[in-house]
Design a protein around this nucleic acid. Sequence first.
DNA 1: ACCGCATATGCGAATAGATGCATATGCAGC
DNA 2: GCTGCATATGCATCTATTCGCATATGCGGT
Lengths: 126, 126
Amino acid sequence: MHMQRMEIVQVYKCFCDVQRLRILNLLKDGPLCVCHLVEILDSDQVKISKQLRYMKELGMVEDERVAQWKVYRLADATNPLLQKNLKCLQDCYGESIEFNKDIRKRSAVTARMQRENAACAQAISA
Amino acid sequence: MHMQRMEIVQVYKCFCDVQRLRILNLLKDGPLCVCHLVEILDSDQVKISKQLRYMKELGMVEDERVAQWKVYRLADATNPLLQKNLKCLQDCYGESIEFNKDIRKRSAVTARMQRENAACAQAISA
DNA sequence: ACCGCATATGCGAATAGATGCATATGCAGC
DNA sequence: GCTGCATATGCATCTATTCGCATATGCGGT
């Protein structure tokens, strides 16, 4: 694996896993750091970290260090293939793959972070 | 690999290869047999056969024997995820992944079959 | 320099997918 | 039953991806 540009097949490779789909869906509303994703997806740090690495190799996400956090965002949020595919998924299976639930949880988690961990909350809103 | 129903992730697995994308694009306009696909995609029989097998395992296509031919069609042409994704691909990259060229070649090939190999032409139009 | 938190990497095993080459199978006509 | 055409399968090899477990690295505060 290498790759950095977002190619057609790379997009679909990224889409081949529900957890990655959920991550993309979350990131489309703005950047998040690993700790957010771990909590929202109710997964563990190593797993999420590796998914993000893979997604980065595929050219789908970018990362940026902010203090001790690593903020991830979509590499090209305007890519029409990505946008349309996510929208299509949302339309067809929004609830069944937990897209909607994740978005609701995202709000809850970021709100709590705002209170309990202001520095981290700052990192993703910069 | 097993699977037969068309699940979300299976769809994307099918989409992870340009040749498979081209096959789906061709089948969306109606059934074809292996010999058509081999010619339109300018590939070889074993390769196409294996792609079709994989696509069948993913639940994306169905086959039917007609005399010595094997006719393949989309397992669920009305599946919205499939339809929308193909349309989206068509819109975004129609020429670059040869979707359009393939469709044009499809017409040429089926027309010629009609003349030179009527039995086979009959098989896919039944 | 040390500690704790956030994140990443390494490794070994397991599974999945791709590829090239050879060969088998199914069907129709003779 | 033999032949030819259309299609499928088997096998060995290779690369890609996944998973669990352990451990390393980067950063900020003391």
